[in-house]
Nucleic acid binder design. Structure first.
Length: 258
DNA sequence: ATGGTGGCTGGGCCA
């Protein structure tokens, strides 16, 4: 089973590239972020034609998360779990696909340290952890993936000196991410790869991709039962090339059958 | 070259 996550930065602008990538790679599940589509505008038919069921949690021209699957799509839940203060934006969608509960997440950017949006980012991560505590055990098959807008450690940015007191690397948000992981999940990329300088996002501005100025802010967290079945994690850097790319590329996790 | 890109829109904000 191949599970992928990709911040597509507008599914309207990116549909042809997403279709081409899905056609080539044939993921069993693809989680998307930043669809930037209203709920009813999601192109379900385009994915049905390729053999996928799909679910979307949209809000309009911003945010929006989706999951497409060809191994089942059940227990679809937009937003955080019942009993937890709901997000006012469309940033998390959860479903069960092929026996694994998978969440497609678009964590708030934060804008600047101590900005209201940064406090929202920290609160959002707390509510993600609370959702897991309320609905799952660490022994469940769970994958939480998406655009976390956090570089987990200094290996995950191109030049740490450029990020003094900046969002994506600040201690409180890294601690908030660690708290999410302490539910009982691991960054599956780091399970297989220890090197730095492997990125999932490059700014559109200033030729960042060609200079190697990126960050690893997209990943798949998984509980131990899933990690124990994992065989490979990869990042499709080629997806950043060519005409009209997203500024993020797909990250993929391969899991053996249970 | 003192700005650089790209998406939302339809001027300026956001990433």
């Amino acid at each position: 089973m191949l599970i992928a996550t990709w911040n597509v930065n507008s599914l309207k602008a990116r549909l042809s590239r997403v279709q081409a990538w899905v056609e080539e790679v044939q993921p069993d599940v693809l989680c998307m972020q930043e669809t930037k589509l209203a709920q009813e505008k999601f192109p379900h038919d385009a994915f049905t034609d390729m053999g996928y069921e799909s679910a979307h949690f949209g809000q309009g021209q911003w945010n929006g998360v989706a999951i497409i699957s060809k191994v089942g799509l059940e227990n679809v839940r937009p937003n955080f779990a019942a009993g937890i203060e709901p997000d006012h934006e469309a940033r998390i969608l959860t479903a069960t696909c092929g026996g694994i509960q998978i969440s497609s997440c678009y964590v708030p950017n934060g804008r600047e340290v101590d900005h209201d949006h940064y406090k929202y980012k920290l609160s959002w991560l707390q509510r993600l952890r609370a959702t897991l505590d309320a609905t799952n055990k660490p022994t469940d098959n769970v994958v939480v993936c998406g655009d976390f807008n956090i570089a987990p450690d200094d290996r995950d940015v191109w030049d740490v000196k450029q990020f003094e007191n900046a969002t994506h690397v600040s201690v409180p948000e890294r601690e908030a991410l660690a708290h999410v992981c302490e539910f009982g999940m691991e960054d599956t990329f780091r399970h297989f790869h220890q090197e730095g300088g492997i990125f999932s996002w490059w700014d559109y501005r200033g030729g960042s991709f060609y200079k190697g100025h990126g960050m690893r802010i997209d990943y798949l967290l998984a509980t131990k039962p899933v990690v124990d079945r994992a065989t490979w994690v990869g990042i499709d850097r080629n997806a950043r090339k060519g005409e009209g790319p997203s500024d993020h590329v797909p990250v993929m996790l391969k899991v053996k059958d249970a």
